[in-house]
Design a protein around this nucleic acid. Structure first.
Lengths: 200, 200
DNA sequence: TCCTCATGTAAACGCTGTATACATCATCCT
DNA sequence: AGGATGATGTATACAGCGTTTACATGAGGA
């Protein structure tokens, strides 16, 4: 993890890891089949941390589904901004199929929970009655896309506060929708819970 | 370009490129400072192709701003699905600062155009009066995030038709918004222009 | 006590990016 | 016409990489 965080995924070297551990270059092969397997293990760990942070943030959020979605997005984006190299480790090609089954199961469980929450919110009338798959996909896409742009430096330097602002902004947009509304925009979509208010 | 498309960014090797060109391993250094510079040149070319396809699709779309946004997203996502490795070449870390000034200028111009279109649409009442920066960011994020997920294989195999479906779906969601509407959903947001209709 | 297995090492292979010194050849200046 | 020049390519070398192979070592159970 330290090697990745310091030198990035590109500079991640089996020999360097061995050096850090004070062992010979071949030693890692007693524990991992090859470099890819080690990288996958690191990525799995990164994913666990990210999942934890997101889950914690969602647990702390207000019970409102949009507020929870927003908390999810903020935590996700903040993690990316705070640990760009760790986040990048999550985007290594084809990582998904290499994950340990337990991790995949946990993730699917988490997604199923979110899905149930969205369905419940739709039933209660607090989320638009769009196809649930599409809602989930759009939510994941917008948050992931924002995080990716931050990590790639396309949005300039982004600290935690700025990351929060950006996440609030995009979750606000997806909450309201681009198509104009006849009735006004409800307060809780444009306003941030707690101390922050949205600039604008 | 052929080397990238065939072997991917990870398998992209200066020596392989030299081999393909039938020259010695050191020959490329007469034309590019180092591997990074060649990769950047390839990525620039990829970006040009993507920009062209997107611009063409937008030009063909109906004059409605949401329809144009949708056409933009569809073209972007289809490019990613059709040329995953070329698309991945666009995500190499820090590419943004390495681009030739002309390319950056063109891109900024394109963004300014989009921005003006959004502003005009807002003035005309066909896009919600959200802060324009946030609208632009959200639109880019959701499309980029979807493309990225496709390329990383997180959505399974995605052909052109499926890519179109997915792009239609997420642009639909961001068009309508998660927060429920009192008045009904307008047809042109849920329906696809032309032959396709949205499943649901 | 001895055997086995997990862990580590040393050395080697072919690959990579890159630097250096040398060759070739078209172009342009006189 | 002829020689200097610059662009392009080659040969060779080096260090670093992932990976394999054969060999060492030492702890724990039979």
């Amino acid at each position: 993890m330290r090697a990745i965080a310091e030198d990035g995924v590109a500079g991640f070297t089996l020999r360097d890891v061995a050096r850090r551990a004070g062992v010979s270059p071949a030693a890692p092969y007693r524990h991992f089949k090859d470099k890819e397997e080690l990288l996958t293990a690191v990525a799995t760990e990164c994913m666990s941390r990210l999942d934890e942070e997101v889950a914690a943030a969602v647990a702390e959020a207000l019970p409102d589904p949009l507020e929870q979605f927003r908390a999810n997005g903020i935590a996700y984006v903040r993690f990316a901004a705070a640990n760009p190299e760790l986040f990048r480790a999550l985007t290594i090609p084809g990582l998904f199929e290499l994950l340990p089954p337990e991790q995949r199961a946990r993730q699917q469980q988490q997604e199923a929970d979110q899905r149930a929450a969205v369905a419940a919110a739709q039933a209660a009338g607090s989320i638009s009655p769009l196809p649930i798959d599409e809602v989930m996909l759009a939510a994941r896409s917008i948050v992931h896309g924002l995080a990716h742009q931050i990590v790639e430096g396309q949005l300039g330097a982004v600290d935690a506060a700025r990351a929060t602002e950006l996440a609030v902004a995009v979750t606000g947009v997806i909450g309201i929708g681009l198509y104009p509304r006849k009735s006004g925009i409800p307060d809780d979509v444009t306003r941030r819970t707690g101390a922050h208010r949205r600039r604008r």
